[in-house]
């Protein structure tokens, strides 16, 4: 069964078209990476799938239901690029992760013991259980990113959607969430993630989709690592995959270059 089915999708902001005629099919258990240069539309693609950007044409189905009528949001765990800019009001890691239970519990019920257990399980999965009572602002960027993954995992979703989860993240955190995602995929979970480099996640990726200039330029097996941004122990013996170079950037500054 298709978990995400996108056909002939068009989308954009403020009169500017970003995606043109994009079709994508993600089946249950797939691990699909969306790659592309900054501004290629890769983030817009997942944001449109999730309904955060309005689509202008084509069709999106989530778990076999048209996105407009889809209501089982607990089946989807969304991991945004970063924690929203702090407003100064403190929040603990546990409080942020507990938000991940709302989709399942609903607005009208108080959190129960199964909610608390799910929060602890999710934090254990990303290796942050010892930080549960710490304010999120005291965490490193990588640990904050793991907190967001724990928030998504806490809802026990069937599909994880991640927007550049390893952008500007330390190696220890990259390993920790590669392990968490591997476990999630091993349990039959479906993963759709936007990446600017494959990094330690590479062994996990079943299929890569390269977005270039708002269209899908390539779809198939993940490309070979290119350049010095690959794994730390990478010896750089592979020739670059010429036909992909247009779509994959060598490195990507992450501040202020989000695709909207």
């Amino acid at each position: 069964m298709s978990v995400v089915e996108v056909s002939h999708l068009a989308a954009g902001y403020d009169g500017r078209e970003i995606l043109r005629d994009v079709s994508l099919d993600v089946a249950a258990g797939d691990v699909v990476a969306i790659l592309g240069a900054n501004g290629s539309g890769k983030s817009t693609l997942i944001r449109t799938i999730l309904g955060l950007v309005p689509s202008r044409g084509g069709a999106i189905e989530l778990f076999g239901t048209p996105q407009k009528r889809f209501r089982q949001w607990a089946r989807i765990g969304y991991v945004p690029q970063r924690l929203g800019a702090g407003s100064g009001v403190p929040a603990t890691v546990g409080e942020v992760v507990a938000s991940g239970r709302l989709a399942r519990r609903g607005v009208f019920r108080f959190p129960g013991s199964n909610d608390r257990a799910a929060v602890r399980d999710a934090l254990t999965a990303v290796g942050l259980l010892d930080r549960i009572d710490d304010p999120v602002t005291t965490l490193s960027g990588g640990q904050q990113q793991r907190t967001l993954i724990a928030r998504a995992l806490a809802g026990k979703p069937d599909l994880l959607v991640l927007d550049e989860p390893n952008a500007g993240v330390d190696a220890a955190s990259q390993e920790a969430f590669a392990a968490a995602l591997t476990r999630f995929a091993g349990d039959g979970g479906t993963i759709l993630l936007v990446l600017h480099e494959l990094g330690p996640l590479r062994p996990l990726i079943g299929r890569a989709v390269v977005v270039h200039d708002g269209r899908i330029a390539y779809e198939g097996t993940p490309p070979e690592p290119a350049g010095h941004h690959a794994e730390p122990d990478h010896e750089h013996l592979h020739p670059h995959a010429e036909e992909l170079k247009a779509g994959i950037c060598e490195w990507a500054p992450t501040e202020g270059t989000k695709a909207y």
């Binding site: 955060l52 209501r71 607990a74 969304y78 929203g84 929040a91 942020v96 938000s99 709302l102």
Partner: peptide
């Protein structure tokens, strides 16, 4: 009573939307 939902909304409105929370009503 609505603290968990309002916290989620004010902490990260897009996440609240993807969680299926009634964002506009809140």
């Amino acid at each position: 009573f609505f603290r968990p939902a309002l916290f989620a909304l004010c902490n990260d409105e897009e996440y609240a939307r993807v969680s299926g929370l009634p964002v506009r009503t809140l």
